[in-house]
Each structure stands twice: as C-alpha cells, then as structure tokens.
Amino acid sequence: MEMTNGNLPKGIWGTVLLPVDGRGEIDFGALREEIAILCASGLDGIYSNGTAGEFHNQTEAEYEKIVTIVAEGARGAGCPFQVGVSHTNPRIARDRLRRLTPLAPSGVQFILPDWWTPSDPEIVHFADGMQDAAAGVPLILYNPPHAKRKLTLDEIANLRKRMPNLVGTKLAGGDEAWYRERRALLPDFSVFVPGHTVAFGRPRGADGAYSNVACLSPRGALLHWQLAEEDPERATELEKRIVSFMQQWIIPLISSHGLSNIALDKMMAAIGGWGPVSERLLWPYISAPTEALNEAREHYNKMLPEFAPLF
C-alpha cells in the first residue's frame, strides 16, 4: 500500500460498486463481502458513492447505511477509505458532509452543483460552504468530463486557495502540455486520472487513479500502476491492450445498447468476477445484456491474461 504525503491521497483506489439482487434491491450482505475483498486486495484505499457506486440513485436511508457499512468494513481491515457526498442538490451534499465527521473518513469526494450550471460567484459560495462543513476532513473534487461546469487547472488552483481542506481532484487527464500545466499550477496536490491512462500519466505527474481498471481487476489495476514506475515499456504495452479491450468490447455498448458509464463499470466487475457484483443496476437504468457480457469476458481472458488470475 502506497504511503501518502500528509493528507494527500496517492495510488490506486477501488470504487465500491453496489451489489443489486434479483429483486432490484441493494444486497447489503454482498456489499460487506465486496468491501472485505477490496480491502484485502492491496489497493491504496477504497471509496464509496462515486459514479460507479450509483450515488445518483440512492435514498438518504440507503446512503446512510452504505457509508456506515463502508466505514466499519474499511476500519476493521485497516484500509483507508473515502466517502462521496455528491448530490444534484448542493444543500444535501453539504449536509452529508457535516454528518460524516463521526465516521472519520480518509477523505470526502464531491462534485460541483450540477443540476444548473453554477456561475463563478456560485462556485465560490459553494466552496466556502463545503470548506466550512468539512471540519478538518480532506476534500477531493470530482470534476468529470460530463460535469456541467468543467474547471481548468488554473480554476482548480484558485479554488484550492479558498479551500484549505482541498487536497486533490479527479480529472480526465490530458497530453504532455496538460501535465506540464498540472505540475506548475498544482504542486503538493493530488491529481487523479482515469485508471486506463496511468502508464502515460504516472511519469508525468499523475498521483493515482480512482480506477475504472480496478472494476475489472483490483490487483490488475495495481499491477498496471506499479509497472508504470518499475517497467514503463511493459506498462505502456499493457495500457494499449487495456484500452483496446475497452474500445472493442465495452465502449460500443453505449451506442449499440444505450448503456451508461455506470453500466459499463458494473459490466467490467462482472467480467472480472472478483467479487459478488453483477451487472445489475438499480431501477430505472439498463444493465449490460448477458450475451454481450459473455462475449466480452471471453476476449478479456485472451487480451489481458495478466488480469484473469488476479482478484
């Protein structure tokens, strides 16, 4: 497990996906089992209530139960954990942040207000409120490509000045010029990029990934990250195969079957077979069809043989 510099998160973190049973309900027993598997895998940490955790489709009662189970399971295993407070209602996100203090998470992930695109003054107002509610808990901004307001690195640097608790961000990454700007504007700050780009990103300043590759294989994602430092040539070759697998057998289902990114993440977990997580999503979202999943699994075993035995 990778060490952190103070409160700065580093390395490969695995998302807690929601196990959904045949009735379409959250299977909390399977959730506990999944958390134990993730914590035993060697990941640098786990996080709940991200996109792949279907944060957008939970009741507050479900949210409370999920984060409590995550905190208890992670603490019992000695595993760092972060909790997402994201919500389309920023007042609920702030209230969730206030209520998390007794759980003492390693960090809290949040998105900007997202139902209506926030103006610059509204982002400042939101940042001040979240900073005040954090009560010392490290904060991580999740600013994905589909966010209604995508911040530049310079805007994130300015936000950091207002939020002493802001220690990191999860972004889509970029090219050589983007990483040069990242190093110049955001020193002593954790920048996480997609898991399938760490061979390119780690030598240039990526601090880790809240990893989509860990949906396929937690230990496979760790292998990819370690190779990025120890054997960059092999890491680059592996990364090409990871991307090729996703481009051929995962991403096309967005257009061919109308699947969401969440459905693709859960499909990858079902393909990897490392835990009690199926492809099923909470209503009303559509999960990957069985035939597509089986076909992708066959190619996964051929294209990424390093991952197949790694749970």
Rank of each mutant, 00 (worst) to 15 (best):
M1N: 07
E2G: 11
T4C: 03
K10V: 11
T15K: 05
L17N: 10
P19F: 15
V20N: 09
D21K: 06
G22W: 12
G22C: 05
A30M: 03
I35K: 09
A40W: 02
G45W: 05
G45R: 06
I46P: 09
F55C: 01
F55M: 08
T59Q: 13
E60C: 12
Y63M: 04
E64H: 04
T68W: 03
I69V: 07
A71G: 04
A71C: 05
R75T: 07
R75C: 12
C79K: 14
P80R: 12
V83P: 01
V85R: 01
I92T: 15
I92Y: 12
D95R: 15
D95T: 10
D95P: 00
R96F: 12
S106N: 14
Q109K: 00
I111W: 07
D120F: 07
H125I: 06
H125A: 13
H125E: 09
A127I: 09
A127F: 10
D128R: 10
D128Q: 13
D132C: 06
A133Y: 10
A134P: 06
A134C: 04
G136C: 02
V137P: 10
I140Y: 13
I140K: 01
Y142I: 05
N143T: 09
P144L: 09
K148W: 09
T152L: 12
L153P: 03
N158A: 15
L159H: 00
L159T: 01
R160F: 12
K161D: 11
R162E: 08
M163C: 14
M163E: 09
L166G: 06
V167H: 04
G168N: 06
T169W: 08
K170F: 13
G173Q: 10
G173V: 06
W178Y: 15
R182H: 15
V193W: 09
P194M: 13
P203K: 03
P203I: 11
R204I: 03
R204P: 02
A206T: 10
D207Q: 03
G208A: 08
A209W: 08
Y210T: 13
Y210Q: 02
N212F: 04
N212K: 11
R219I: 01
L222P: 11
L223D: 00
H224P: 08
P232H: 05
P232Y: 00
E233H: 04
R234N: 07
A235N: 13
E237A: 15
K240E: 08
R241E: 08
I242G: 13
I250M: 02
L253V: 02
L253K: 00
S260Q: 09
N261R: 05
M268R: 07
M268V: 04
M268G: 00
A270K: 02
E279W: 02
P284W: 03
P284C: 10
P284H: 07
P284S: 08
I286R: 14
T290L: 07
T290Y: 01
E291H: 15
L293E: 07
E295R: 15
R297Y: 12
H299R: 09
N301F: 08
M303D: 00
L310W: 02
L310G: 10
